[in-house]
Every structure is written in structure tokens, then in C-alpha cells.
């Protein structure tokens, strides 16, 4: 049983690689579609080129970064309330 479990990390890495490639593939398709499909926006800025993509990408980075800062302030040991 030790052989499969020692293989698992590489399995996970392989899965990660497939996942990343699939994401990039979809991202390229979405990039291409941007030239053909007119997206309706609530404000004109939202209709600018690849706006939702940029918004999603930056929002995600922002959330994670704020989370890291928040950790410094509000993270405590597991037995804090005990």
C-alpha cells in the first residue's frame, strides 16, 4: 500500500497541471469571445474590454491579501476561548 500513497503527491501535481491548463484554455476562449459578443453592463465601464475578468482577478487577490493582514489581527490559538 505504500507505493500508491507515495505516488499521491505527484498525482495531485498532475491534477493541478490539468486543472491549470483547462483554466487557461477557457480563459483564452473567453478572451476570443470578447471580440464577438457584446456584454451589457450596468455602467459603461463594465462594458470595457475584459472588465469582469480583471475585476474577478483583482478582487480575488485583494480578498486573499486582506485575509493575510486580518490574520495578524484576529487570529488566535485554537484554545483561545477554552
Amino acid at each position: 500500500m505504500s507505493t500508491p500513497s507515495s505516488k499521491s503527491p505527484s498525482d495531485l501535481q498532475r491534477l493541478g497541471g490539468i486543472f491549470t491548463k483547462a483554466l487557461l484554455g477557457i480563459a483564452i476562449v473567453l478572451f476570443g469571445l470578447e471580440f464577438f459578443i457584446h456584454r451589457h453592463g450596468v455602467v459603461s465601464a463594465e462594458e470595457s474590454f475584459m472588465f469582469p475578468a480583471l475585476y474577478g482577478f483583482l478582487a480575488f487577490l485583494f480578498i486573499v491579501q486582506v485575509g493575510k493582514w486580518l490574520r495578524l489581527m484576529i487570529m488566535r490559538k485554537e484554545d483561545y476561548y477554552d
Binding site: G16, F19, T20, L23, L24, I26, A27, L30, E34, M50, F51, P52, A53, L54, Y55, G56, F57, L58, A59, F60, L61, V64, G67, K68, R71, I74, M75, R76, K77, E78, Y80, Y81
Partner: peptide, 29 residues
Amino acid sequence: MQLLIFAMLAFVVLVRLKLYPPEIPSVVL
């Protein structure tokens, strides 16, 4: 799809650059 896929790409970038915060046994106030 743009919003979701590019947000996921941000996640992949963070994980690959080891910038995604690791899980730590803790309590969040």
C-alpha cells in the same frame, strides 16, 4: 464566466507562487 475563471486563475497564480496563505490551526475572532 470571465469573473469566475480569472478569479480562479488568480488562485492558481497564488498557489504556484506559494503566496496563498496556508491553513493554520487557529481560532478566528
